[in-house]
């Protein structure tokens, strides 16, 4: 019943978003019909395009899960972008430094990436749990630290400046590559890993005591504490897991798609994860369709640009409109909840 209502709400939001998008297109002097036709074709037109959509959706699944796991514990992880960069760099580093047999190398590099991301989630988690530092601010700020730190690492004056002027590392060794499904397509096994993680985290959240504790802390930390749950530990665990997921996503993106760490490689997958997690209403399994929706908008936007029906800027505008409309109802709910909680807090003060 709740599922049907949520689905209905999302579909209505989508319809509204595309309506507004059409209006904006019309006002910009573009043909809404052509824009949507190319958007659809770019996202689902043939096998290649579907694969492109899934390629774009893969990192978004990781970052959506990252946002979601913290959100379930009542925390906002706004720093998935930075955690992803750190994971991406150290995944690449393991990929070109270590000498290991095939497959094992990939697994190790992925784990190194996840570890780097986990560290970047642990710090704000620890600060939040032990020092009460607002994780919204700390994750976001640490995110910039990570993005520019990795940028420095591969800059001309940094230690891992690879080749040919561009700010990137050398290529990873073939043994560390995350294999692609089909030659000539970018889609790689990261998609399968992401899908499995969605299932795993569903199990973790809803079928294990640790997951229950985490959710209990998210729903009402004080009640959770009275019930004997270690709230600090749950918070640290949630943000560390969030960081690990984003870091793993970054490493997978490098080992599967780019094969080297490139400065500023992400077009905003970390931020997309916030939208993805909210569209999925923080449900791990719903992350899959949510990420595919955002991935489709990205791939479709590239299609629109290529077909010349709209400049690439318009694709971004359209993505923004759609994400805004689909996320907005959830945002209103969150704000309402926060306001209610504030009121309760104020009233309960002696």
């Amino acid at each position: 019943m709740r599922l049907a209502r949520e689905l209905g709400l999302i579909l209505a939001s989508l319809a509204l978003a595309f309506g507004v998008g059409a209006l904006v297109a019309q006002l910009s002097g573009l043909s809404p019909g052509a824009v949507y036709r190319e958007l659809w074709r770019g996202a689902f037109g043939d096998q290649y395009r579907v694969f492109q959509t899934l390629t774009q959706a893969t990192p978004i699944m990781f970052t959506s899960l990252s946002f979601l796991i913290a959100f379930r514990a009542g925390l906002f992880n706004i720093g998935a972008e930075g955690q992803m960069y750190l994971g991406a760099f150290f995944g690449a580093w393991a990929g070109f430094t270590l000498i290991l047999p095939q497959y094992l190398h990939t697994v190790v590099a992925l784990l190194v990436g996840a570890l780097a991301g986990a560290l970047w989630g642990f710090i704000p988690g620890w600060l939040r749990a032990r020092r009460g530092t607002n994780e919204f601010v700390s994750t976001m700020m640490l995110s910039y630290v990570a993005i520019y730190f990795t940028s420095w690492l591969v800059s001309p004056r940094g230690p891992y400046h690879g080749t040919q002027w561009a700010n990137q590392t050398v290529r990873i060794l073939p043994s560390a590559e995350l294999p692609r499904f089909v030659r000539g397509m970018q889609l790689h096994w990261g998609l399968v890993i992401a899908g499995l993680l969605c299932a795993l985290f569903w199990y973790f959240l809803f079928r294990t005591p640790r997951g229950y504790e985490l959710r209990a802390v998210g729903q009402n930390p004080r009640a959770a504490q009275y019930a004997g749950i270690d709230v600090s530990r749950a918070m640290i665990l949630a943000l560390t897991l969030a960081g690990a997921l984003a870091g793993l996503g970054g490493a997978a993106e490098i080992l599967g798609t780019h094969r080297r760490f490139i400065e500023f490689f992400s077009p905003g997958y970390g931020w997309d994860g916030i939208a993805g997690g909210l569209i999925a209403r923080a449900h791990p399994l719903a992350v899959i369709p949510a990420a595919v929706l955002i991935g489709a908008l990205r791939a479709g936007g590239m299609g629109m640009d290529r077909a010349g029906v709209a400049p690439s800027d318009f694709a971004s505008v359209l993505q923004g409109i759609v994400i805004f409309f689909v996320v907005a109802p959830e945002l209103f709910r969150i704000f309402r909840r926060i306001r209610r909680e504030r009121r309760v807090l104020v009233h309960s003060q002696p």
Binding site: Q186, F264, M302, R306, G308
Partner: peptide, 17 residues
């Protein structure tokens, strides 16, 4: 036809497209 990639990550997709 021309395209304006928004990041280095977009290059491969466009080249193959």
């Amino acid at each position: 036809s021309y395209v304006e990639p928004r990041s280095i990550a977009d290059y491969e997709g466009y080249q193959r497209e």
